[in-house]
Write a protein that binds this DNA or RNA. Structure first.
Lengths: 152, 152
DNA sequence: CAATTGAGTTGCCTCAAGGAACTCACTCGA
DNA sequence: TCGAGTGAGTTCCTTGAGGCAACTCAATTG
């Protein structure tokens, strides 16, 4: 949809958006993550047009986020599953959930709860520094050019 | 751009996407976060059409993510700054950077580095459980309906 | 007084999203 | 063996969103 492709920009945010930035893509990822893996099931759950769904799935498979696997040979039937790359993208969804629950849920409360396997409690994700382990938010960091920054 | 509005869905991911899911919005947020706060500066940095930029900024201000502030009265000049709500959305950008650096940076390395104030080191964010403090990834949680789930 | 700058607005054109109908291969039940 | 059903798309048409360029308007600098 966007004519301007984000994949060529020297910015990891833009390049991530190139993969899952198009409308519906994160919701498709969410559905596959919660176990809705077949074309028709996705189409019905999302209310997305079949055309757009087919395009998005193809793109996500190309990008290595989803894998298209045959689960029946006669008749040939496929399902979409997460690759490791895709599973790690789901962490992004978890963070979206955190923000959405906090700022958009309102009186009714969060639409979904997340129970952490390790402790068995319902919780949210928090961001920590990979080096020192302390909390790390956008306001706690300086952004500096890295090795992959565009020249000029 | 998407005709289907995500804001009405009973899903925090969809509602988050309703706010910043449209093309360019996350990049606008990134720019404001790194200190590019004026209309023309944003337009030039992003290469976005002025029309779309005006629309996005208006939307983000309406949604309470950005604030439009006058920094000069004669001539009247404005800049866009992050609200608390917007700052917390930037955490999402940090996670995007993490994924993008890991999966899309390639040989050249990450385009930007993030130095954590607390420890002074260049690092990435990691996701931890808000209850037990242990690492928490999408594969480590069960998703269950919450109080705000749609009936049926 | 002309040129410049900041911050948009307007108009036109193309391409993408939505929707519905159609295809095609296979299976199941009568 | 006929018809209905299912999974997985593809095709076609209409509408509307994004890109681009030009225009506005007010104040400021030279």
């Amino acid at each position: 949809m966007q004519r301007t492709r984000f994949g060529d920009m020297a910015c990891s945010i833009a390049r991530t958006l190139d993969v899952i930035g198009e409308p519906w893509s994160p919701l498709i990822l969410r559905d596959v993550y919660v176990g809705i893996t077949r074309f028709d099931a996705l189409q019905q759950d999302l209310g997305i047009s079949r055309k757009v769904l087919a395009e998005r799935l193809k793109w996500l498979v190309e990008k290595g986020v989803l894998a298209r696997q045959q689960y029946s040979s006669r008749p040939p039937r496929h399902e979409y599953t997460l690759t490791t790359k895709g599973e790690e993208l789901c962490d992004l969804l978890l963070v979206m959930v955190g923000w959405g629950d906090r700022w958009t849920a309102g009186e009714a409360g969060p639409p979904a709860l997340h129970r952490h396997h390790a402790c068995g409690e319902f919780s949210h994700v928090e961001l920590h520094c990979s080096v020192c382990g302390q909390p790390m938010h956008a306001t706690d960091v300086d952004v500096l050019p890295g090795p992959g920054a565009a020249a000029g």
